[in-house]
Amino acid sequence: MMLFNRQQTQLKTLPHLDWLEAEAIHIMREVAGQCANPVLLFSGGKDSICLLRIAEKAFRPGRFPFPLMHIDTGHNYKEVTDFRDQRAAELGERLIVRSVEDSMQRGTVVLKHENESRNKHQSVTLLEAIEEFGFDACIGGARRDEEKARAKERIMSFRDEFGQWDPKNQRPELWDLYNARAHKGENIRAFPISNWTELDVWQYIQREGLELPSIYFAHQRPIVRRQGSIVPVTELTPAKAGEAIVNLQVRFRTVGDITCTAPVESAADSVEKIIAETATTTITERGATRLDDQASEAAMEQRKKEGYF
């Protein structure tokens, strides 16, 4: 009986970031090869910034075989939306922006109250945009390590014509043989960086020298502490009566809708320092920073069933 050890291995293998990149390129090319009219969802956040670099590596010197699209709640940090527009322009690729505010004007999004977070209503606007453009696949930057409901997500995830994700009816996914087939009106969500962790993303950003919106790095910001979370004080999220506003050095680990994204206390003002912090932290990315996911254990799963990314 043979026992394995590293000395036996003669064949060259890829370092881990190269492997992850190669897998992501392969997935993106499969979407382009199998789907007639895909779109890449680009928010200006770090995960979708990685997706753009992967798309460059997958398709240059040609143009991307898909446009970029952002579903804007109207409540995003200006640093992020400015970055989004600038990056799309640099790449010379088409950027579609569809706004939750437009859905509100159409009456398809109705807030329960004026201050309700628009984050979960992105699903409606996304589905409207999918219908408007006839997209049969949406490429997104979701990762399986983000939280529990995503650990069993497929790389090519099937959504019915209502955009619903049915966790009991997902296609088995074997080898690197992806099934992105969908009937008219149905939709595939494709996640090329499914197998990346938050640490992998930061290591890739470092290796590729990718630019990021400034709010990912440590900066001073007025905040209040609320139920164990750090809540940034903005026009949309003012301090409540009796809460003490303090200036704190913080950075964002995720950037999303202002009303539901919290920063973490950090002095990490460079990619290197963020990597060191990420490697040693024991709190998950969403656990620390997404106020909406904390509402209930199954919050994410519920939103996904409703068509959320």
């Binding site: 399986r144 390590d145 529990k148 650990a151 069993k152 966790p167 009991k168 997902q170 088995p172 499914s194 197998n195 962790t197 254990e297 199954a298």
Partner: peptide, 15 residues
């Protein structure tokens, strides 16, 4: 959670 919801078909990936 998977078992409670009857999702027995699924492979979970961890890192």
């Amino acid at each position: 959670a998977e078992r409670e919801q009857g999702i027995t078909i699924d492979v979970a990936y961890r890192y």
